[in-house]
C-alpha cells in the first residue's frame, strides 16, 4: 500500500509541477468560468432583480462547462508521448494511476473554481446562504464530475474533434448531478446541511467513483493496446 501511495503522490506532484510551468494554461478554466458568467449577466440585461434567481443555475452551468472542456487533455498528453505505456508496463495498477490523475485534476481545476465562488457571488449579488449552498453542492458533486469527465476523456483519447463529443458523452451522466445540486442549493437556505438533495448528491458521487474509476482504467487499457 505504501509504495502505491508514493506512486500516486508522485503523479500528483508531477502533474501540478507541469501545470504550474505551463504558462498559465491551467487557469483557462477559471477564465472561461468568469467569461461565461459575465456574458450571461450581459445577455440577461444586467438587472440584479432578474439575475439573482437565475444565479445558482448559471454558476452551476459555468462550473460544468468549464470543467468539461478541461478533460480533453487529461489523458491525451500521457497517451500521446508514451507515458501511459510505461505506466502500464511498470506494474502500477491502472486504477491507482486514474485515481492520481483525478486527484491532481481536482486540485488544478475544481479547487480554483470553488475558491472563485465568492467573486461569482458578488457578480450576481446573491445572499451568503445561497453561496454556502453552492459551495457545498459543488464540493459534494465534484467527485462525480471528475469521474465522469475523466471517463469521457479516456474514451476520446486520439479522437479528432473530441471536445464536442466529450460534452455529448458526459452531459447525460451529469444530468442527475445538476438536478440534485440545484435542488440542494435552494433547500439549503431553509433546511440546512442535511437535505435529501445533498444526500442524493453524495450517493451519486459514490456511485460515480465506483463506476467511473474502473471504467476509465479499462478505457486506458484499451487505448494502450
Amino acid at each position: 500500500m505504501v509504495p502505491q501511495m508514493r506512486k500516486i503522490s508522485g503523479i500528483i506532484v508531477r502533474d501540478i509541477c507541469i501545470a504550474l510551468r505551463s504558462g498559465g494554461a491551467w487557469l483557462m478554466g477559471l477564465v472561461f468560468f468568469a467569461v461565461f458568467l459575465s456574458l450571461s449577466a450581459i445577455a440577461l440585461g444586467g438587472e440584479f432583480k432578474t439575475l439573482r434567481p437565475l444565479a445558482p443555475a448559471l454558476i452551476w452551468l459555468a462550473v460544468v462547462f468549464s470543467l468539461l472542456f478541461s478533460f480533453e487533455h487529461l489523458f491525451a498528453d500521457d497517451a500521446d508521448d508514451g507515458t501511459l505505456e510505461h505506466i502500464k508496463l511498470s506494474g502500477m495498477s491502472m486504477h491507482a494511476y486514474v485515481l492520481a490523475k483525478i486527484c491532481a485534476h481536482w486540485l488544478l481545476s475544481i479547487l480554483p473554481l470553488i475558491l472563485a465562488l465568492p467573486l461569482a457571488g458578488l457578480l450576481f449579488d446573491i445572499p451568503v446562504a445561497l453561496l454556502g449552498g453552492l459551495f457545498i453542492s459543488i464540493l459534494l458533486a465534484s467527485p462525480a464530475l471528475v469521474c465522469y469527465g475523466a471517463f469521457s476523456g479516456a474514451c476520446l483519447v486520439g479522437f479528432k474533434g473530441g471536445g464536442f463529443l466529450l460534452v455529448l458523452l458526459t452531459i447525460p451522466l451529469v444530468v442527475p448531478v445538476l438536478i440534485f445540486a440545484l435542488g440542494g442549493v435552494i433547500s439549503y437556505a431553509d433546511a440546512g446541511l442535511l437535505t435529501t438533495e445533498f444526500q442524493a448528491l453524495l450517493g451519486i458521487s459514490l456511485i460515480a467513483s465506483a463506476i467511473g474509476i474502473p471504467a476509465t482504467a479499462a478505457a486506458l487499457n484499451t487505448i494502450t493496446e
Binding site: P3, R6, K7, S9, G10, I11, R14, C17, I18, R21, S22, D80, D81, G82, T83, E85, H86, I87, L89, S90, M92
Partner: peptide, 28 residues
Amino acid sequence: TGYQGHHDGHKPNLTALENLQFWQSIYS
C-alpha cells in the same frame, strides 16, 4: 521488460533529472 516506443515520453517542461525522478517513484 523495458519498452521504448517511438516516443521518448519525457515531459518537456520538467528537467532531465525531474523526469527521471518521476520514473524512480513509479518503479520504486
